[in-house]
Design a protein around this nucleic acid. Structure first.
Length: 490
RNA sequence: GCCGCCUUAGCUCAGUUGGUUAGAGCGCUAGAUUGUGGAUCUAGAGGUCGGUGGUUCGAAUCUACCAGGCGGUACCA
């Protein structure tokens, strides 16, 4: 039986135009990260599963969320699901020789074995920057500024994005205030609360209130268990989440009374105040970076500041319905990740851009950075006996830095013209026996030709007028082709 | 994982109360046009109607299960 030619679920092929746009975006991000002084680092796609911390509890098998396989020595390997866990492994393994703080950026493919959805795939690209080895919130602030600069570097205008900042310690302070111990190792409830608050933008305050309390039934009738908080506890959490004000300082003042009785909350508030003063000193308090108590992040390894990059414009799908892309980047401080390996706490903070998701959002906006790239100039094969001659023309063009190819198929001239059209060729080079005898080549500008065609309805006229076609001496071929390309690259 | 909706040609979709050989537009291929991508006209290729069972004299149509897709929700360490 023949295998079906089919793409695995949740994966996708990426073709030329998108690939070029991706490369352009990666280059812009990289340039920004380099400018902040981060160094590139590449780690492999696979890590030992235990290094990723991905074994199922109480089982000898990796978590279902990661793609895993067993090596010949029966050790479990998993494809990385983010770039942070491999960084922690790298730092732990090379700790002594690395400069501290250690600052690196990394980009690459990550894999998650989860249910795919629109804009959510099982393989995608992230671009991370992290600073490892300092507790200073200056490092966190800088990461936020980096995130803002990066958004602008890839063509998102000021005002179209926002970097939102909060602090887990403040949140813990609020939880303490309602009788939840954040340090409780059985902190299921804390995580449930975090995740509930994380859904604020999607479900609204009423939805979150249900998730904090008895639970919520969604529109399909499915029920989600809640955190089981008392009514006044729910109100306290929601009050905190809603305490965002017009300015960072006003927000901080609004938060202050809510965490005044908590040591952790007070510490977090101090950190936020320090960040706020650094942010405004750098001028990023103009809306680029904002303190927002509703940002919590669903992951539980964050220990201090957390950030999210959001797009503030609406994106619609092909049917005009609004699409929720969620955050296009996020991060925060994770002071305990390296300690998993060394036992020694190493403070770290970082940010990850979801390149694929960001690009999908930009594509919806029709804002792909790279315009349609011109195809190669095509040398038509009019006479197969003269292949070497055509080959030489293509070579001359290539040596002059012009993308060119000789038609490599075996079809006739009409098909060759169609091929050139489909390839987006700026022009074709035609030399049949007539031209060869005269020592000339015909060069047809396909883009001008297409424009001219719009005003020609009659086929005879279309053929005879040969729009946008010139005859030049063979020696002028390269120069003429360059002229045509220059005209269309403007 | 759970809930709901959907699946007919490469794409977008028609298809009567279940009734002969399942259609259209676009796209594709070829010709009209001995050496010119467009336009026009003509012809052609392309379908086990998502799969497998069931009901029926007869199923694209009804039904059960499965797969895939979409949406919601959960999970996303």
């Amino acid at each position: 039986m023949r295998p079906a030619a089919r793409l695995p679920k949740g994966f996708r092929d990426i073709e030329a135009a998108e690939l070029r746009a991706t490369q352009a975006m990666l280059a812009a991000i990289r340039e920004t990260y380099e400018r902040y002084g981060f160094e590139p680092l590449e780690t492999p796609a696979f890590e030992y599963t235990d290094a990723l911390g991905k074994f199922l509890p109480d089982a000898d098998r990796p978590n279902a969320g990661v793609f895993s396989l067993q090596d010949e020595d029966e050790q479990w390997l998993s494809l990385r699901y983010d770039l942070t866990a491999p960084l922690a492994r790298f730092v732990a393994e090379n700790y002594d020789r690395l400069p501290k703080p250690f600052r690196r950026f990394a980009t690459g493919t990550v894999w998650r074995n989860e249910k795919p959805g629109p804009g959510r795939f099982r393989q995608f690209t992230q671009f991370d920057a992290d600073t490892v080895g300092t507790e200073s919130v200056a490092a966190d602030t800088e990461i936020c500024m980096l995130a803002a600069d990066t958004m602008e570097a890839i063509g998102i205008k000021r005002g179209e994005y926002q970097i939102r900042v909060n602090n887990r310690k403040v949140l813990d302070g609020v939880l303490e205030g309602i009788g939840i111990d954040p340090a409780d190792p059985e902190g299921e409830r804390r995580l449930t609360i975090l995740r509930a608050v994380d859904k604020l933008d999607r479900l609204g305050a009423e939805g979150v209130a249900l998730l904090l309390g008895p639970g919520r039934k969604d529109e399909s009738g499915d029920f989600t268990a809640g955190a089981g908080l008392e009514q006044n506890a729910i109100e306290k959490v929601l009050a905190f989440v809603a305490s965002g004000a017009a300015t960072g300082d006003a927000t901080l003042d609004a938060i202050a009374p809510l965490v005044a009785n908590s040591e952790s909350g007070t510490k977090g508030l101090e950190e936020l105040r320090e960040m706020q003063s650094l942010i405004s000193a750098a001028g990023y308090d103009d809306g680029r970076i904002r303190i927002d108590p509703s940002i919590v992040r669903g992951l539980d390894y964050y220990t201090g500041p957390v950030f999210e990059a959001e797009l503030t414009f609406e994106v619609t799908d092909d049917d005009g319905r609004p699409v929720r892309f969620g955050s296009v980047g996020g991060g925060g401080r994770y002071d305990d990740l390296v300690a998993r390996f060394t036992g020694k706490s190493v403070p770290a903070t970082g940010f990850s851009i979801g390149v694929s998701r960001l690009q999908a959002a930009l594509a919806r906006l029709d804002r792909q950075s790279a315009a349609a790239t011109l195809g190669p100039a095509i040398v038509l094969v009019m006479d197969r006996a003269e292949l070497p001659r055509y080959q030489r023309m293509a070579n001359d063009l290539r040596n002059a830095g012009v993308r060119a190819e000789m038609y490599l198929g075996t079809s006739g001239m009409k098909a060759q013209m169609k091929y050139a059209d489909k390839r987006g060729a700026p022009c074709v080079i035609i030399q049949g026996s007539n031209e060869r005898d005269e020592g000339v080549v015909q060069i047809k500008d396909l883009i001008e030709g297409a424009k001219a065609a719009q005003s020609i309805a009659d086929n005879k006229e279309w053929k005879e007028s040969r729009p946008a076609q010139v005859s030049v001496p063979e020696g002028d071929l390269v120069e003429e082709v360059k002229k045509i390309i220059a005209r269309h690259q403007g």
